[in-house]
Amino acid sequence: MLNRLERKHLLGIEDLTREEIEFIIYTAENLKEISSRDIKKVPTLRGKTIISFFYEPSTRTRTSFEIAAKRLSADTISISASSSSIVKGESLIDTARNIEAMMPDVLIIRYPYAGAPHFLARHLDTSIINAGDGMHEHPTQALLDVMTVKEKKGRIEGLEIVIIGDIAHSRVARSDILAFTKLGARVRVSGPPSLIPPYIEALGADYYQDIEDALIGADVVIALRVQRERQKQVFFPDTREYFIRFGLNKRRLGLTKEDALFMHPGPVNWGVELDPEIMELPRTIILDQVSNGVAIRMAVLYLLAGSKT
C-alpha cells in the first residue's frame, strides 16, 4: 500500500494506477467515520483555501465537495458560471488565472466540455480536481462507486459490473469502466446502440447488444441517467419507449445474481431509466453512494492538499 499520493492533480481515472486508486479508497474508508461523529470536523486542512468552480448545474457533487472540505476545516468558496464574470465574457483561462492570484490551494472544476481541467492543469500551479468535464471523466464519482461496491462486496476483483443506458454521453460510464477494470472487475455495457459510442472496447468494456443478456449473472448494475441536455440529436423515440425497452425494473433486475447491487450516479429520472418499484429494494444503494461521496472527496482533498506538510 502507498503511503502518499505522488500527484498534484486529480484529472481522471485514466491517469491513476491501481495502487493509487486503492490508496484513495483506503484513505476514504478511514475518513468516513468522521462524518458519523457528533462534531464532524477535524483540523487537517485548516488554513487551506479550496475553490470550487461549477460551470454546470450540480447538487450532489458540489455539496459533497463543500461538505468534505469543511469537515477537514478548509476554507471553501464556491463559484458558479451564472454568478461569475463568465457572463461578462471572461475566458476560462483569465478567470482561472485571476482566481489563482488569490492563492487557493485547490481548484475543483466542473465544466461542460472535455479537457477543461487538463487545460487548467497545464496553465496553473494550483492543484486541480476534475468534478466532471463534458462527456470525458468524473473521477470522484468512479472512486465513490468503487468504494461503495467494495464496502458491500468486500472486493472488486472478479466482479461482473454492468452499466446500462446512455454510455455515449456519460462521463460516469467512462470513469467507471476505467476504474473497475483497473481493479480487476469485468465491465459490460448495454443500451440503445444509438447511445453506445464507437470503439467502446477501447475503454476496456464488453458490449452486449441485448440488455437482458448483459444483466444475466451481474454482481452490480449501474443505471445511467438519460442526459437529455446533452442530446441535441434524436437518439431514441421517447422516454416512454425507453422505459419499456431499456428501463430497469424488478423483472429485469431478477436476471442478475441474487445479491447484486443496483446503483445510479444521480440525479435519477424515475420512470425513465429506473422503475420507481425498485427504489425501496435493500439492494438499491443509491444513497450509500452519496454518503461515500463525502468520504472520497475528503480523501482526495486530504491527499492532494494536506498530506504533504
Partner: peptide, 19 residues
C-alpha cells in the same frame, strides 16, 4: 457531425469528444 470536434474513433470515445 453536428457538434463534432475530432475524428470519430477510439480516441474520441476515450476523450469523450463528439466525433
Amino acid at each position: 457531425s453536428p457538434d463534432g470536434v475530432m475524428n470519430e474513433g477510439k480516441i474520441s470515445t476515450q476523450l469523450g469528444l463528439p466525433g
